[in-house]
Design a protein around this nucleic acid. Structure first.
Length: 432
DNA sequence: TGTCCACTGGAAGGGAGGGCTT
DNA sequence: AAGCCCTCCCTTCCAGTGGACA
């Protein structure tokens, strides 16, 4: 029972701008049709159909920028295979056209290498897909790699089947942990008696194969596909398709879809971005109890997404990275707009000393600075000053005061904040 | 043209922390 | 309990570097 004064009551009474399931606007949702990816679906299906005949399909490498539908196409095919399997199970007599096929014996295993980015983790995840009993699972740490691999091989080979392993964000795994997983997985077929394994690697980065052992590279890239970015018109179709399912027709203002598509097209045609913009715009409209979604909501959604991204990135930084960023922001605020690694390090050193922490070495700090640069929180360029040496030139690229406040609100570095209490924070924290 | 600065960034390895095996 | 494995975070060492300057 929900009482009259329940805090959710007033929000529950408000009308939702969404018609039904708002997950339709999430990038992870796989619709019944994938607009403008028909060719890619056909190409991949023509490779994967081999699996339905009980043979091993070629390994495939799929390249394309973020939000170009790579994962969606692969998972779309996975769903279609699973649907066929279900229908096959439900009706014992399958259509004549499938009588030569072994649909039941195809298994898909999906691993996102951004989430699971170690040799051990990837092998463990794949192996455990074939285990039902908790006690038979590969533990999350403790076993030697050879044993994990052996267990994985045995589990796959327990019965005759074709296993399609999808390694999403494969470049992340290779850059972080090298190619030993790919080495093992790409030669596993020579060690299997009953089963066959096929690999689908998905990557944002065309160049990651340069880091691969030549044998792995040739085994893995038997087939290659490149997904082009969507243009604004195609993004509009994608959005219109989803919006039709997510909203009543009169909810969306006339230019909302065009604007979301245009903004996302500016960023290399990212469908994920376009969907996020539309969903967040609608959520803002809903929260403010507006009856329709307008272009104003879209512009605000754009700002909100950008701000949330930065805040999320800062919040999840480890303590010392936060201190490095904090040093940069304070000095930047103090008027030093272009800083060097040496300056940042002495400021950081001063901060840690005052707060009673042990500072990390300068070598480690150069890595943290590079990480902050990669996250887009700062700009760091290597520049030579001739006789005055060669170093990084560092500038912050986030709203200074907002992020300083955010870092100061972190409990783990509260002692640093207390150094600045009273008076002008910037002047008090004169660092160099 | 050679020197020199202030680093950069790769390589190797230590050690803590998680857990398994014997 | 001791020995082992893997990952993560970090230190230490050091060759390499771009370009101003003598």
């Amino acid at each position: 029972m929900i009482g009259q004064d329940n805090i959710f009551k007033s929000h529950m009474d408000s009308n939702s701008v969404f018609k039904g399931d708002r997950d339709i606007l999430r990038p992870s949702y796989i619709p019944e049709q994938l607009p403008h990816r028909g060719d890619q679906i056909q190409d991949l299906a023509s490779i994967m159909v081999t699996a339905l005949r009980g043979n091993r399909p070629s390994n495939v490498l799929i390249f394309g920028k973020t939000g170009t539908g790579k994962t969606a196409v692969v998972r779309f095919l996975e769903r279609e295979v699973n649907r066929l399997k279900r229908e096959n199970l439900e009706s014992a007599e399958l259509d004549d056209e499938f009588e030569d096929y072994d649909i039941d014996k195809v298994e898909y295993v999906y691993v996102n290498c951004e989430v699971v980015d170690t040799h051990y983790g990837v092998m463990k995840n794949i192996g455990n897909k074939f285990v039902e009993e908790w006690s038979d699972q590969i533990p999350f740490t403790g076993w030697p790699m050879e044993k994990v691999y052996e267990s994985l091989r045995e589990k796959i080979d327990e019965e005759s089947r074709v296993v399609v392993i999808i390694l999403d964000e494969l470049d992340k795994l290779v850059t972080k942990s090298g190619d030993s997983v790919l080495y093992h997985l790409s030669k596993i077929n020579s060690e299997l008696d009953q089963s066959k394994v096929s690999l689908i690697g998905i990557s944002n980065n065309l160049k990651f194969t340069e880091f691969l052992d030549p044998r792995v590279k040739s085994r893995l890239g038997e087939e290659k596909m490149i997904f082009p970015p969507y243009d604004a018109e195609q993004l509009k179709d994608i959005l219109a398709d989803r919006a039709g399912k997510a909203f009543e027709p009169e909810i969306l203002g006339s230019d909302v879809i065009s604007l979301c598509a245009a903004l996302a097209a500016q960023e290399h045609g990212d469908a994920r971005r376009a969907l996020d913009l539309l969903r967040v715009s609608a959520e803002i409209a809903e929260r403010e109890r507006d009856e329709s979604v307008t272009t104003d909501h879209v512009y605000r959604a754009k700002n909100k997404i950008e701000q949330d991204c930065v805040r999320e990135a800062v919040n999840t930084l480890p303590t010392h990275s936060k201190l490095v960023l904090y040093s940069i922001l304070l000095m930047d605020d103090n008027g030093s707009d272009k800083l060097t690694t040496g300056e940042v390090y002495s400021a950081y050193n001063e901060l840690t000393k005052r707060s009673g922490m042990d500072p990390l070495t300068q070598r480690r700090i150069t890595d943290l600075i590079s990480e902050l640069d990669m996250l887009g929180l700062i700009n760091a360029r290597v520049k030579s000053f001739g006789r005055r040496g060669r170093t990084k030139q560092i500038q912050s690229s986030v709203p200074k005061h907002e992020i300083i406040d955010l870092i100061e609100s972190d409990e783990s570095i509260e002692s640093v904040k207390s150094l600045n209490i009273g008076g002008n924070r910037v002047k008090q924290t004169k660092l160099i």
